[in-house]
């Protein structure tokens, strides 16, 4: 499922943007992560619906002055560097990282909310985020 980063600035941070968008479009939005400050907000969302629905929600958000960026392939693990130590696993808030039966690390990109905790903790520097793509 596509994930989007939403960014908006101080002048609209007070208005209920997500709620109005949901009401307007009738399409549900799932908030994976939210960081709201004095003067800006950054949200990571998924949109529950097909391509048309996604487009509708994005347009509605952009009309409200929200910057919308689609996230690329999420978290990737470089198998040539990883030693399957597992140091990253317990730090992941969404259980996107786990061992398979052979004690090999597997990454479930769908679940990742790009918090970065695993990237910093990996002793092999084997995890990274794919570049963000503009749409």
């Amino acid at each position: 499922m596509n994930k989007y980063i939403l960014r908006y600035s101080s002048d609209i941070v007070d208005s209920p943007i997500i709620a109005t968008t949901v009401l307007e479009t009738g399409i549900l939005i799932n908030i994976l992560r939210a960081k709201v400050d004095y003067d800006e907000a950054e949200l990571i969302i998924t949109i529950l619906g097909d391509d048309e629905d996604q487009k509708m929600v994005i347009e509605s958000l952009r009309r409200k002055g929200v910057e919308v960026i689609r996230l690329g392939e999420n978290i990737v693990n470089d198998d040539t560097r990883c030693v399957d130590c597992g140091a990253c696993i317990a730090l992941c808030p969404t259980n996107a990282l786990s061992f398979n039966e052979e004690w090999k690390l597997v990454v479930d990109g769908e679940k990742c909310i790009i918090c970065g905790a695993c990237i910093r903790a990996c002793p092999r520097r084997s995890l990274s985020l794919q570049d963000l793509q503009e749409i």
């Binding site: 030693v83 399957d84 130590c85 597992g86 317990a90 061992f99 004690w103």
Partner: peptide
């Protein structure tokens, strides 16, 4: 509470 090994079980085997 979630647990993480810091040693590689796979490599140990």
């Amino acid at each position: 509470v979630k647990t993480s090994p810091l040693s590689s079980i796979k490599k140990s085997i």
